[in-house]
């Protein structure tokens, strides 16, 4: 009844969408894992990453894929400042403080972005726009292949950092047991600032890939991706990086499958239906543990 080529195409669109979700959710989960804070303003870091990429692109004309590094580095710095000035003073206090602080940050970031860049919708054109690559029965835009590869490279880099470097191991230790990490001499405040910076950099990478795929952006773009990123980390398990990756892929493919089989209005709803089903069956999420 359904054409195989069309179904493969839908899965491919799902993989592409999943890449943006994975980067955003992985960053959010990294921050939550280490600091145990809820940051609703995480989508705004995606927005700032998108604007930095676009601004550098307009000023220099460089390949926007190369600008991803600039965008990520800038967000490491911005993230570090936000962690130091906003989240560190309230760390360990009521969750309500974190929630209202991050809601306040949403307004500050969106209004600042509107003041700096204006609030008109903007877009940039990738140098590879219009180039398609035949893969089997599919004709796939080159940009989306690059986006999938770029996401994979970033995730591999993150894996190597967390598993093979001393700082990465210290970060994981802080995530697993903060007090224990302090007792063995790990500077957990350094881990906080580092994890927050890396989490923001991953959001910036998602923002860059968002704009190079040709999607429009404006200062208010961050809220919907942030809500989805939260749903993904709850689905995958709070604090679990593999959970964020699998959750992002599930959401990307499920959303596009729902749009195809049920219609576009079901696209957002299906994500939350899956979330409810998973939480009913496994309250800690797919990869979450009881202690988390």
């Amino acid at each position: 009844m359904y054409d195989t080529g069309t179904l493969l195409q839908i899965i491919f669109w799902g993989l592409y969408a999943g890449c943006i979700y994975i980067l955003l959710a992985t960053g959010l989960n990294l921050i939550f894992g280490v600091m145990k804070i809820v940051n609703f303003a995480h989508g705004e870091f995606l927005m700032i990453g998108a604007y930095i990429t676009a601004t550098v692109f307009f000023l220099t004309g460089f390949n926007p894929y190369a600008i991803i590094l600039v965008s990520m580095l800038a967000l490491v710095g911005i993230g570090a400042v936000v962690e130091r000035l906003c989240f560190r003073p309230i760390l360990g206090t009521s969750k309500l403080n974190e929630i209202f602080l991050s809601i306040g940050l949403i307004y500050i970031f969106t209004n600042s972005a509107a003041m700096i860049w204006g609030d008109e919708w903007q877009s940039i054109k990738s140098p590879y726009a219009g180039i398609s690559v035949p893969i089997g029965s599919l004709n796939v835009p080159l940009d989306y292949i690059i986006i999938i590869i770029t996401t994979s490279v970033i995730l591999c880099g993150l894996y190597v950092f967390l598993r093979k470097t001393k700082t990465g191991r210290e970060m994981r230790a802080t995530s697993q047991n903060r007090k224990g990490a302090m007792l063995v001499g790990i500077n957990v405040e350094r881990m906080d600032i580092l994890s927050f910076g890396i989490g923001c950099a991953l959001a910036a990478a998602a923002g860059t890939l968002w704009v190079v795929s040709g999607q429009v952006f404006n200062p208010y773009m961050g809220s919907i991706p942030a809500v989805k990123a939260f749903a993904i980390i709850i689905l995958g398990g709070l604090g679990s990086i593999p959970g964020a990756i699998i959750g992002g892929l599930i959401y990307g493919i499920a959303e596009n499958g729902a749009a195809y089989f049920l219609g576009g209005v079901w696209k957002d709803a299906i994500s939350f239906i899956i979330l409810i089903v998973v939480l009913v069956l496994r309250p800690t999420g797919l990869f979450g543990e009881e202690s988390e």
């Binding site: 999607q215 596009n256 749009a259 195809y260 576009g264 209005v265 696209k267």
Partner: peptide, 20 residues
Amino acid sequence: QQSFKMGESDFRTVLTNIKA
């Protein structure tokens, strides 16, 4: 006759459906 949510930014799947 396909619909989408206000503010949607990724229309590829629904367009694939229409193309069919």
